[in-house]
Nucleic acid binder design. Sequence first.
DNA 1: CAGTGAGCGAGCTTCCGCTTGACTT
Length: 915
Amino acid sequence: MSHKLVIVESPAKARTIAGYLGSGYVVESSIGHIRDLPNNAADTPAKIKDKPWGRLAVDVDNGFQPYYVVPRDKKSHISKLKSLLKDADELFLATDGDREGEAIAWHLLDELKPKNIPVKRMVFHEITKQAIVDAAEHPRELAMDLVEAQETRRILDRLYGYEVSPVLWRKVMSGLSAGRVQSVATRLVVDRESERMRFRVASYWDLEGTFDAGSAHEQRMFPAKIHSVDGARVARGSDFGPDGQLKSASAGKVVHLERARAEGLVAALADTTYDVRSVESKPYKRSPYAPFRTTTLQQEASRKLGMSASTTMSVAQRLYENGFITYMRTDSTTLSDGAVAAARDQVRELYGAEYVPDRPRVYASKVKNAQEAHEAIRPAGDSFRTPAQTRLTGEQFRLYELIWMRTVASQMKDATGQSVTIRLGGAASSGEDVVFSASGRVITFHGFLKAYVEGTDHGAATDDAETRLPAVTEGDAVSAASVSASGHETKPPARYTEATLIKELEEREIGRPSTYASIIGTILNRGYVYKKGTALVPAWLAFSVVRLLTEHFPRQIDYEFTAQMEDVLDEIAAGRSDRNTELAEFYFGSGDVDGLKTLVNELGDIDAKELATFPVPYAGDEETGINLRVGRYGPYLEGPGDDGAGAAKRANVPDDLPPDELTVAKAKELLANPAGEERELGRHPETGLVVVAKNGRFGPYVTELLPEDAPKSAKPRTGSLFGSMSLDTVGIDEAVKLLSLPRVVGTDAEGVEITAQNGRYGPYLKKGTDSRSLTSEDQIFDITVDEALAIYAQPKQRGRGAAKPPLKELGADPVTGEPMVVKDGRFGPYVTDGTTNASLRKDDTVEDLTVERAAELLVERREKDAANPKKKAAKKGAKKAPAKKTAAKKTTAKKAAAKKTTAKKSTAKKTTTAT
DNA sequence: CAGTGAGCGAGCTTCCGCTTGACTT
């Protein structure tokens, strides 16, 4: 009953390989990494939690020793592997042959701890029977240097992410993140936007004409553009720099046509006849594109199918799992011999033998840090199914078709043809010699273009575009059918799209095939970037973060950082360097170069306000006194008051206003009309004032707009929306009711008025100075005098009003002997023995909380309090005389936390809405 | 960044790369 156990990374791969190896082998998968550094506090083992480096799970003072854990969702899988191992007489670690794969193999070995059986490392680069059997027959040893390189990468990323992110929490906003990959990706988007903001438009003119070669030519009419005037080339867009001026290389060599000159030339050319000055013909040749790898697939799926990177990957995943395509997370463009043969067969069948090149095409990897653990992305199998044969539908069909076409085309002949440039010259009546130029392309053999033409970004011409020109020869006379002047403007560099950003990252060796799609997800989720159509637009928040990082972590956010890291990792993999040397350099620094730790520790002087302030205009010399500030509630403008000396004026900046559209004029407009996103609901039936709904510091509310001549002391009435209302749907009737508050409910026996209204802690009744909370907002309108009096008959409730029974009662605390109860608090459920309170942790539930666990939480809490006795004292002091900064920081953290709680837990809702 | 009547328990956020389902909208 014994077998050989083979472990690969992917379940789909395991299924295929099991078929090739046959009986005697059991093939299982690791499903990716099986161990990792703990993700958060809840997953961190207690024994390292209290260490100074516990949060990192890397003992930075002792050889950067990492502490790995098996994530919760992998535990059962590990048990399964262990039980399979029990009956195995041999273990094959067949994870991918790259850095990460080698590390997975080592983790498997270290975790499964096979006893007394041979362990072999087996590696293959394509999933064919031959390749698998070969690999099984020629195993090798685990490459520990490669594992060490992976650990270095892993630890470096942890140190970077978990040391720098908290800097952002303190200086910018809670919950933000920084990392080797995401921060550079964000920087790319921000830098591109800055380029757009600095960009100055250049305008230039040219002449376009339609020319007539005469009736002797089959292709008689053809377009041409002005090329030169009196021998000087006419300036085109590429002659201008981003400053709107002619580039120095072009200055003096080109003639910059302005409108008057261009129109003058048109007039002066009215009676001109032209002669062909030159005809230049060159052979045109185009070779097929390499088969898909992850990034090129994402780009083409975006351009041709409009799919986002993540959609592309999930559709591809399904195709892969069902055996239609090879693995989709790859940086390789290599095809197996079988695949090449299949592609060539298909070409012969579909297009004929003349489209098959004499020898198979081989594609070398263009990717610098490629790990080549897989093949290119191609149809699976040794003979390809046509899209129709797959019976796929929808997105899967379209993506398969794309992959199939690209693969087939990659084994086709070059496209060939001729490209032709014709120059026409003529004399203007004003005396200038004017030359026009026409270029054409004729494809005589389409080759691979018959099967596949790559899409382009930003509307460039595709490779199969053709323009036919008449077959004129030098000296021929040509007349102009029409000539006109047209004006052009240079355009700023385009914003990144998902696909072009991924392309840029790949070129800079940043990120891996398995992460490209999620990098986009991360910077979107953090609010660093948002999508406008397909364009990625940076939020002002990203400007703040990138500014902090470039000023204080210049080395870490450098575009070259990852590429340099890759070089170092290669050195480690080759045994020429080691983990500790390199990590120590990164973390502690060396020579004059500060390490990460120093940089993080010496940040006391970062001025958060300054960091979040940007002058308007952002790029320009103009002094407007207007600043854009990134605030807790989003970006806003701050400008000088009208009288110059008065209080600063403020205005919200709409969330969807791209930074490069915040011109001085736009800023002034927003400041003059700071209504922001208020919505007019109509006029108040009694006062006639316009009532608007808007978002404020305390959430959505309605208010009335006072007439401009109203005395300054007059204050408009306001009213918060009820939880049941929304800004988008609230109407004038509801608004009028809200504005009418407080409502007089009635009077008590002594004739004292009782009112009902909404306040900071929710709905409440007020009688003189005596107040009582209500349980629902609707009661503000509904409650009767009798009901109100009944409430006042009760003694005043402390705390959150109506007795909220404990969520759960547990037995006596083994330590204090006091009964323990679970209560619902501002920050969610907590357990208390009357003196000590401890919040339940992320993975504790009220239902499953045992006496033991509750006691454990209380013990932990007491220990913490004992360890930091000054914390409480400091808090008290702060309350009395708060240092400005500390106070501000605390509220920020609190609000952010409260916000999150609302989103996740409905139990906490009530409290947080009141906050 | 509107405007008002309490009294109270902090703890967590975060990285990059490997992999799939299991979840909810």
